[in-house]
Design a protein around this nucleic acid. Structure first.
Lengths: 163, 163
DNA sequence: ATTGTAAATGCAAATTTATACATTATATTT
DNA sequence: AAATATAATGTATAAATTTGCATTTACAAT
């Protein structure tokens, strides 16, 4: 359609420039600008534009334009692949594993099952596992162990810092 | 309410870790985790958490957590969920918080909500929270962080505190 | 011009989400 | 403890949004 792109741009501008909280409301604005359409089409337009609806203190709910937040969220999600493991960090000489909600204890159980000397013990919360290495076991010892015994699980490590 | 904070935390984590595209779907996940509630309450929770629903290529629509507005919400977070804190101690380079029975997870949730670099992770039991600082973060770094970000939590930088 | 094809749209129904109101639980004050 | 105020929740319903299907429009290829 000839007008579609123009309409999509108009929708973006409207959403970007004011607080709009329902499709009906937006529809009326568009009508005033000379665009005739139904709410169903608007729903599809918003989907196409990836416009999100978000709770807002003042207005109840407002439409917001997509931005980097979304990309961040999605890549973050994409990284969470296997068996519920999300990330691996090291701090205080220990390893901290983040998992999907509820997955911590089962993964910790698997790790316990390795029966590795290097690991003195594990503690699992709901989505976090703490691995406590034996005294004298270094971080790289632990990484090596996990690399060998649980291939594919290691992708990331923490940065160091002083504050 | 007793379970509310914990539930909010669970909701946040579920949304952050997987693609959820309707409240019904989320509701079922929560039920599996032992939370009984109606869709109406969930709708209110999502509004409170400022969770947005956004079109997504793969899943149709997905809920996403607020990011930038979080700064605003952080203060909000910091101002709630602090009741029940009993003491703060340091050992083995880590902080150990004692709370009233059952309060650990909600307070840990608040701390997680700070999303502070200094904190590598937390693990909450029933009445104990372990805060694992990142390497290089000193005890006073941690105390300062908590003083600034969670005013009212810390009265004195040593040993226990009153509440 | 006619035919074929894909995109765009409307309509109506289904689905999903929000909320008014009543009730219950929790906290605060006296 | 009792009374009062606040906050949280469920129920039922309204409001808002999405979608299957049919129809129309735009456009390309005969």
């Amino acid at each position: 359609m000839k007008n579609r792109n123009e309409r999509l741009m108009k929708i973006r501008r409207l959403i970007g420039s004011m607080n709009i909280s329902s499709q009906e409301e937006l529809l009326k604005l568009l009508e005033k600008q000379g665009y005739e359409m139904t709410q169903a089409t608007l729903s599809r337009d918003l989907k196409y534009l990836k416009v999100a609806k978000m709770p807002d203190n003042s207005a109840g709910y407002v439409y917001i334009l997509p931005n980097i937040e979304q990309a961040v969220e999605e890549t973050e999600l994409a990284n969470r692949g296997l068996t519920g493991l999300i990330s691996l960090d090291f701090a205080q000489g220990m390893a901290i594993l983040r998992t999907l909600p509820g997955h911590a204890s089962s993964i910790a159980y698997t790790i316990d099952g390795l029966d590795a000397y290097e690991i003195a013990g594990t503690i699992a919360g709901d989505d976090t596992i703490l691995i406590i290495p034996r005294d004298g076991v270094t971080r790289s010892d632990l990484v090596n162990l996990l690399k060998i015994r649980m291939p594919g699980l290691i992708q990331e490590s923490s940065g160091s810092l002083k504050n």
